[in-house]
């Protein structure tokens, strides 16, 4: 899976993105965020506030229940502030 991080999530984790292989028991975006949080350190810090992390699966907004697989591009970022 291709993971992308933007804005404060990118800054806290210290990476713009990474390639990962999903564990077998991670099937949706909520499970992915929980699994990343269990890595601890900067991941736990970046993803600590549940209301503060948005998820996009293949460049479309998703939610905790949106299915994810190793073929997907998943982005994690804070609420948007353009315009």
């Amino acid at each position: 899976m291709r993971l992308l991080y933007f804005a404060s999530v990118r800054q806290t984790i210290g990476l713009a993105g990474e390639e990962i292989t999903l564990p077998g028991d991670v099937v949706d975006a909520g499970g992915l965020v929980d699994w990343l949080k269990r890595r601890g350190g900067v991941y736990a810090e970046a993803l600590a506030q549940p209301g503060h992390v948005r998820v996009a699966v293949n460049q479309a907004y998703g939610h905790a229940g949106t299915p994810v697989t190793d073929d997907d591009e998943v982005a994690l970022f804070p609420p948007v502030t353009g315009g």
């Binding site: 933007f6 804005a7 996009a56 970022f77 609420p79 948007v80 502030t81 353009g82 315009g83």
Partner: peptide, 8 residues
């Protein structure tokens, strides 16, 4: 745009 387009 302000609440949906991914800009920060």
């Amino acid at each position: 745009l302000k609440t949906k387009a991914p800009f920060w």
